[in-house]
Structures are given as structure tokens and as C-alpha cells.
Design a protein around this nucleic acid. Structure first.
Lengths: 127, 127
DNA sequence: TGGAAGCTTCACACCAATGTGAGGGTCAAG
DNA sequence: CTTGACCCTCACATTGGTGTGAAGCTTCCA
């Protein structure tokens, strides 16, 4: 599929699809006329990338781990081929993500508690 | 305390402490000579800010919710003085935080699952 | 055959969060 | 009185992820 369709299906602007390619996160082929040609799997791939970016990984880190997460479920490179440093990196990042989750959860709870204190009537009044 | 000490205790460069002030996240007083003067509580405050920033909130959002997180336990703005629009806004922010928690959780699960698949031997082998 | 839609590259611009450094004031200790 | 550590403001630079637009080619369809 070409870049426009991929963009529509993933809701990611073409600009970013090209940027991800520049960052070596995507590797579309080229047709005779120079157009990018993406396989079907690119849709999932792009969603994966977006999710990771939104959870705070940099393109650099994503580049490091992406080859090992290609399609969810299937382990594309044999597990034993994953260099231990990459696994360590991954573990570290999981730790960071968990710290963030904790931080956000803590603060969400506080805000929720505050909100509940401010309007304890909502349950009954339901305006 | 002055900015240098706060910086040392929080490990946040002075540049950023000034930046946070510019963003209205911190409100140090000034001594006669123009130096910033922070209360003891600023240490916790700065840590709070860092945590939220690292979790992906913008200074703008932090500015919005920070007043309601000041010291946990005490309700800083009196509940009865909170106009309903503010409460609604707060609720929106809570929603955004939750969306972010979900995003992070999803990705953590994916990464963790992958990591587990890659090295299921760690428990036994413990190299 | 011509025009619209889609593709290409290139390049400048933006934003938030930071780094860095110049130029200068304050203050305590030697 | 000077030195060194600390503070001030101002301002330009950088980084990563994006937005946007120009200039030009390709493909498709009327």
C-alpha cells in the first residue's frame, strides 16, 4: 500500500511516516516510480510505534527494540538472538514506565479524592 | 533556602528551577538582595513537578492541577470556594491522566510480555 | 489531452524542555 | 580590600517530535 492509505488507516500524517522512515523505524520498499510501498503489516507496526512514542520512548530506543516486537505474538528474531544489552535496556525502560504509572496513579487518586471532597453530593443529586 | 541548595537537594539544575518559576509552577519569595527564597516544602514540590513532567504531562497541565496536590491531606483551596467549572476542568484532567495511564499500562504489558518470552529461563538460570 | 489527486524531496518553522554562557551584583572569609 | 562562591537577568542554541509549504513528477479518469 502507498503512504496515503497507510496514513488514513493509522491516522498518522504522512509527514510522520516519512520521519519514522528517516529514523529507521519503517522500511518501505520503492516501486518503479519512486513511491513508497508498505506491506499490510505496516499498519500494526505504525500503531506500535505510536504507542511506544506516546509512552515516552524515543525513536532511538524504539529502534533498538522494534525488531524484536514486529508482529505481536510471533517472535520474529529467535529469542536467543536478542542481545542481552537490549533486553537490559528493555527492562530498564519497563521500570521507567512503571515509575510513571505509579506517579500518575498516585496523583490521579489525589485529584479524585479532592474532587470527591469538593462535591460529595453528586452521587445523590446527579444533575 | 536559596536556589543553589534547592538544586543540590533535588538534583534539578537551577536553570530548570527558574524555568518552572517562569511557568508559574514555583513561587519563591525574594530576599532584599533579589535572591530567590524557597520554603522547605519546595523540595517536595520540585520532586512532584519532575515526576509529572517525566510522566509526560506538560507544564501547562501541571500548572492546572498542582494547586490541588500541594500538601496531600490538606485541602488547600477550600472546597466550598471551588466553582463547578473548575471541578469540571479537574475532572477532564483526571480523564487525561487516566488515558495516559492506560497507554502506559498497555505498553508496559506488551514489553513485559515480550521480555518474558525472550528470556523465560532467567528464573532458573539466574546468570 | 488536461486536470485533480497523490506522490516525491527539500527546507524552513514551531514547541517544550533544556543547555550554556556572558555580564554583572552580593556577601562572607581571608 | 580582594577573592571566590553564589546569585541575578538576558539571550541565544539545541533536541525531538511535528506542522507546513514549495516545486515538481506520476497516475488516473473524464
Amino acid at each position: 500500500m502507498r503512504i496515503g492509505e497507510l496514513s488514513r488507516r493509522t491516522e498518522v500524517p504522512t509527514r510522520l511516516l516519512r520521519y519514522y522512515e528517516e529514523q529507521h523505524l519503517l522500511h518501505p520498499e520503492r516501486t518503479g516510480n519512486g513511491y513508497r510501498s508498505y506491506p499490510e503489516s505496516a499498519v500494526a507496526q505504525v500503531r506500535q510505534i505510536r504507542g511506544l512514542l506516546e509512552s515516552g520512548l524515543t525513536t532511538e530506543m524504539i529502534r533498538a527494540i522494534l525488531p524484536y516486537l514486529c508482529d505481536p505474538g510471533r517472535l520474529v528474531p529467535a529469542p536467543e538472538s536478542v542481545p542481552p544489552e537490549t533486553a537490559a535496556l528493555l527492562e530498564e525502560h519497563i521500570g521507567r514506565i512503571e515509575a510513571r504509572i505509579d506517579c500518575l496513579t498516585r496523583n490521579r487518586d489525589r485529584l479524585a479524592a479532592y474532587l470527591a471532597a469538593v462535591r460529595p453530593h453528586d452521587a445523590r443529586r446527579r444533575v
